[in-house]
Design a protein around this nucleic acid. Structure first.
Length: 643
RNA sequence: GCCGGCGUAGCUCAGUUGGAAGAGCAGCUGAUUUGUAAUCAGCGGGUCGCGGGUUCGAAUCCUGCCGCCGGCUCCA
């Protein structure tokens, strides 16, 4: 929130908000970027509005940041057009961490061009040109931009409903823009152009490819430097880099894009996560099932995947003249398990859980480390229940999802509820009654847990409403987390039934849910969240024993054996290297505990403990160390129910 | 898939106007027996992504493929 000023008793004689601010709040006038009156955001050059309250926006406000960076994008477009007069401008919004602008140019920009554009931008900023807003009828604007040859702007205008539109100009540069903007170009203090990339006009690959320049801007050089430093930090934590440095996984060219090899250390990490996951599912009444990787094409016809998910599926393979397909989802298998016998309401709820590996076609350009792959394992479960059980089931899943995410150190969530839109009711499967029951159970679950959420009408997939939970990581980035979806499609396509207390046959409700989503993507995100410094319970190697000289090797092995017997994953570094080198190595591998043993420790039956991120903790008895470690070895606690 | 960039030792990267393929780290061998983030020396290691072309001569220039990286609506 910006600073809110009471202006009810002010006279409106000042030329502009800015002039008024300068007279009454000089320090705020320098910081201000725009002002909000009611739900309208105004230029500082606008007259003082006839409202009681005026909210002064600075860069600290999200809306203010957008204005600031939007002006920076105009300055960039101005610079580009003065250096490349043939460049046509498309769109240039502010985005979360900066801004971009798309240009139609005969030749793509080079890195050298970026430097030239930056230099030109500095000139425009130094000139401190005022940004002038002008309103005009839409048709006049179309003509104006047509004359200038700005066909993209003209196209945008043609599609707009408004009768009157606005332009902003600075010097000779005029741009179609809703605004608002900074009062003058000199208000942009620190900026940097970051990258250039191709982007389709309106994001549609049938349209011409434009050149997009990304940049960012801040009020001070310090803030810009801090932003650039954070980007470097993010690059250091890139899971692909850590995957190699910590020897967790690889995606070798010879294997094929989007296909992952888990090395022993990454394999241990994944094994531990899977074990934890299985155990927690069993505690909550899920039953484990397994299914094969391929199935008859006929099954995928019944499930509908061959019609609505065909593009994501790999081609057929023939077995005994019968067509088979590799599975893109686990659902039909779980449905067949359900249908293997007549189900009574007494059998429900049935919770079938599988770590199911699926294969989906992804276009080569979108593959990305562990985050976007072609073969991955879901922690997939289907809950099949009666309508009067659904409320409790949804709450159970939501609690489970939050527990699991908190166990991995995610504390901040964003909950999205996707429901039907009004526009095209025919595209949705299931009855109105089913949709109502489903939506009500989702809303009740979210609200009963005191979570705030965002309701998105029209965002639901055709087969049912859903909850998506997004996680915020240690660097403030959002990741797709657990998802809870109703599926009215499969219950109907497979004629799923149960016999009710009344002896009649009923259609059950089915929830499809994945909490990690895919193990690959979750672990990829988790590697970046932790920077590769995993908590003790997940560290592939929890402790490394570093003997100082050869004569300490026996003692080191002895300590190693003792720890191993207590369930600690431990290695002994008996290489002929200096202690300093072994310690450096252990630190770079981010091993939680390094245990240095020399004459003193051997004498006293102790280890000298060095903890990752904290340094030397001094000597401790081996048993003392073990009992202190015991709590850290265990996964975070869940329900107390027996396995 | 499309636009751009990149592809040289296991990794990170040099390689000038076309003129004998390099460094650091890692690895191996040896010496050193080490006290909290790199001991020293020596050695091995390459189809310069793959194919075609230009040239007396190509890592370098041209061309076709392959792969990787960034991006491909956060809507004036």
């Amino acid at each position: 929130m910006g600073k809110i000023l009471d202006i009810s008793s002010e006279d409106r004689s000042a030329d502009s908000i800015l002039a008024w601010l300068r007279a009454r709040h000089p320090e705020l006038a320098e910081e201000a970027v725009a002002a909000r009156a009611g739900d309208r955001i105004l230029d500082l050059t606008a007259p003082l509005p006839e409202t009681d309250k005026l909210e002064v926006l600075t860069f600290e406000d999200e809306a203010g940041r957008e204005v600031y960076r939007h002006t920076a994008s105009h300055i960039m477009a101005d610079a580009v057009q003065s250096l490349f007069p043939e460049a046509k401008v498309a769109i240039g919004p502010a985005i979360q961490e900066g801004f971009y602008y798309d240009f139609d140019v005969p030749e793509p920009f080079t890195e050298d061009d970026l430097a030239k554009i930056e230099a030109k931008m500095r000139e425009i900023i130094a000139a401190d040109l005022p940004l002038v807003r002008k309103e005009m009828p839409r048709l006049e604007a179309i003509n104006l931009f047509r004359e200038k040859g700005e066909k993209y702007k003209a196209e945008l205008l043609a599609a707009m409903p408004d009768e009157v539109v606005s332009t902003y100009s600075q010097g000779d540069f005029v741009d179609l823009c809703r605004g608002p903007h900074l009062p003058s170009t000199g208000r942009v203090k620190a900026f940097k152009l970051l990258s250039v990339a191709g982007a389709y006009w309106r994001g549609d690959e049938r349209n011409p490819m434009l050149q997009r320049i990304y940049g960012t801007a801040f009020p001070t050089q310090e803030q810009l430097d801090e932003f650039l430093r954070r980007r470097e930090e993010a690059a250091r934590r890139d899971h692909r880099r850590l995957g190699r440095e910590l020897d967790l996984f690889s995606i070798p060219e010879q294997l094929g894009g989007g296909l992952v090899l888990w090395h022993p250390k990454g394999g241990m990490l994944r094994y531990l996560i899977e074990e934890f996951c299985r155990r927690e599912h069993l505690k909550r009444g899920y039953q484990m099932v397994f299914s094969p990787h391929i199935a008859r094409a006929h099954l995928w016809e019944t499930s509908g995947h061959l019609s609505f998910y065909r593009d994501g599926m790999y081609g057929p393979m023939m077995i005994d003249d019968e067509e088979y397909r590799i599975k893109p989802m686990n659902c039909p298998f779980h449905v067949l398990i359900y249908k293997s016998q007549v189900r009574s309401y007494r059998d429900l709820p049935l919770r079938l859980f599988e770590l199911g590996t699926v294969y989906r076609y992804e276009r080569s350009g979108v593959l990305h480390g562990l985050l976007r792959v072609r073969g991955f394992t879901q922690d997939d479960a289907h809950i099949i229940c009666t309508p009067d059980q659904i409320g409790e089931e949804v709450k159970g899943v939501l609690d489970f999802a939050l527990f699991l995410m908190r166990a991995f150190g995610y504390q901040d969530f964003q909950v999205d509820l996707s429901v039907r839109g009004d526009s095209d009711p025919d595209k949705y499967m299931g009855s109105d009654e089913e949709w109502e029951i489903a939506e009500r159970s989702l809303v009740e679950a979210i609200e009963s847990r005191g979570l705030s959420y965002h309701r998105a009408p029209g965002e639901a997939v055709f087969y049912g409403p859903k909850i998506d939970i997004k996680l915020e990581d240690s660097m403030g980035r959002l990741w797709q987390g657990p998802t809870i979806q109703f599926d009215f499609n499969l219950t109907s396509r497979f004629d799923m039934e149960y016999v009710g207390a009344d002896g009649a046959r009923h259609t059950p409700l089915m929830i499809h849910r994945a909490l990690f989503g895919s193990l690959e993507r979750f672990i990829g995100g988790y590697i970046e969240h932790t920077g590769g410094a995993f908590p003790v319970w997940l560290a592939p190697v929890q402790a490394k024993i570093i003997p100082i000289a050869d004569r300490h090797h026996d003692y080191a092995q002895q300590v190693g054996r003792k720890l191993r017997e207590s369930g600690v994953r431990v290695e002994v570094d008996d290489r002929r290297a200096t202690t300093g080198a072994k310690i450096r190595d252990g630190e770079m591998q981010k091993i939680p505990y390094l245990l240095i043993v020399g004459d003193r420790e051997q004498e006293a039956d102790t280890v000298s403990v060095r903890k990752h991120g904290e340094g030397n903790l001094g000597a401790q008895g081996v048993d003392d160390f073990l009992s202190a470690l015991a709590a850290e070895l265990e996964p975070p606690g869940g329900l107390d129910a027996p396995v």
